[in-house]
C-alpha cells in the first residue's frame, strides 16, 4: 500500500455493439486509472456502460478500441486462451447471484480456480489446503462440505468471495455483491470486503446503490458510456467485526 503502483490503466476504451447504422456505443472513450490497494466503486444508471466496463476490466471481453493495461500488462489484444490465464492468475470475481456450482460443496467450489491453474498445477491436496484456508478466512470453516442450497445467501456470497481469493488475485471485481442480499447480510459482506481491502487487496465494485458506494474510497460515475464524475470519499477508517474474529483496520 505504500507504493501507489498503478494496477488498472485504461486509455480511450470504446465498446461498440452491432455494426453500421444500428451500432450502439456502450463505452465511448473511458480512461481511468486505479492504484494498488484502492477500493473503487463504478456507478451509473442501467445502460450507462458500467457492466460493459466491468466485463472488460475482468478480462471477460475485449474492447473495440483503446488499451487496457492490467498489472503492467496490455491485455486488450490478448487471445481467448491468454485472457483465461489472466483471469485465472490475476483476477477474482464476486457476482451478484454468487454463481456457485450447484450440487457441489463449498470446498469444491472454492477449489475450482486452482483446477485451471496451468502455471503451478497444484495437486488435489494442495488445492484443498488452500481452499480450506480461504474458507476459514471468510468464517465458513464449519460449512465447507455444505452445498450451496444448504447455505444462506450471505454464506453463499462468502463462498464466492473465498473462491475469488483462493488464487491470490491482484484485483477483485465485485458486481453488485450485495444486490441479492438482505441488508444485514449485505452489511456483513461489505464488512468482509473492507477487511480484504484493509489487508491490501485492490477491489473494484459495480453498484447502483449510493449507500454501498459510500463504503469505497472513490466512486467513478458513468453516464452514456463516458466517465461523468469521480467522487473522492477519502479513506474510511473503521473497526470491523466479522464472524467471531476481530480484524483491526489499518
Amino acid at each position: 500500500m505504500m507504493d501507489q503502483k498503478t494496477i488498472i490503466q485504461t486509455t480511450q476504451l470504446t465498446m461498440v455493439y452491432g455494426m453500421g447504422e444500428i451500432s450502439v456505443a456502450a463505452l465511448d472513450g473511458v480512461s481511468i486509472q486505479i492504484q494498488t490497494g484502492e477500493f473503487v466503486a463504478i456507478m451509473g444508471p442501467s445502460g450507462s456502460g458500467k457492466s460493459t466496463l466491468m466485463n472488460i476490466l475482468g478480462c471477460l471481453s475485449k474492447p473495440t478500441s483503446g488499451s487496457y493495461i492490467l498489472d503492467g500488462e496490455d491485455v486488450s489484444e490478448l487471445s481467448k486462451v491468454e485472457l483465461a490465464a489472466i483471469r485465472n492468475q490475476k483476477l477474482g470475481y464476486v457476482f451478484q447471484s454468487y454463481n456457485l456450482l450447484a450440487r457441489t460443496s463449498a470446498l469444491s467450489n472454492v477449489m475450482l480456480p486452482l483446477l485451471y491453474d496451468r502455471q503451478k498445477q497444484p495437486d488435489r491436496e494442495t488445492r484443498e489446503i488452500q481452499a480450506k484456508a480461504v474458507l476459514e478466512a471468510v468464517g465458513l470453516e464449519d460449512r465447507m462440505l455444505h452445498q450451496p442450497h444448504e447455505l444462506s445467501g450471505g454464506q453463499q456470497q462468502r463462498v464466492a468471495i473465498a473462491r475469488a481469493l483462493v488464487n491470490d488475485p491482484v484485483l477483485i471485481l465485485a458486481d453488485e455483491p450485495t444486490g441479492n442480499l438482505d441488508s444485514k447480510s449485505g452489511e456483513e459482506i461489505m464488512d468482509l470486503l473492507h477487511v480484504l481491502h484493509d489487508q491490501g487487496r485492490t477491489i473494484v465494485m459495480v453498484t447502483h446503490d449510493p449507500e454501498i458506494a459510500r463504503h469505497t474510497e472513490r466512486a467513478i460515475h458513468l453516464q452514456d458510456g463516458r466517465v461523468e464524475t469521480v467522487i473522492e470519499n477519502g479513506r474510511t477508517g473503521r473497526i470491523i467485526r466479522t464472524g467471531g474474529g476481530d480484524h483491526e483496520a489499518a
Binding site: 490465464a85 483471469r87 456450482l101 475450482l112 485451471y116 488464487n167
Partner: peptide, 16 residues
C-alpha cells in the same frame, strides 16, 4: 451454460 460461464470466469480455456 451458467456452469460453463463460471468455469470460464475462473480461468477455464475453451480447450478445458
Amino acid at each position: 451454460t451458467r456452469e460453463i460461464g463460471v468455469r470460464q470466469s475462473v480461468g477455464a480455456t475453451p480447450a478445458d
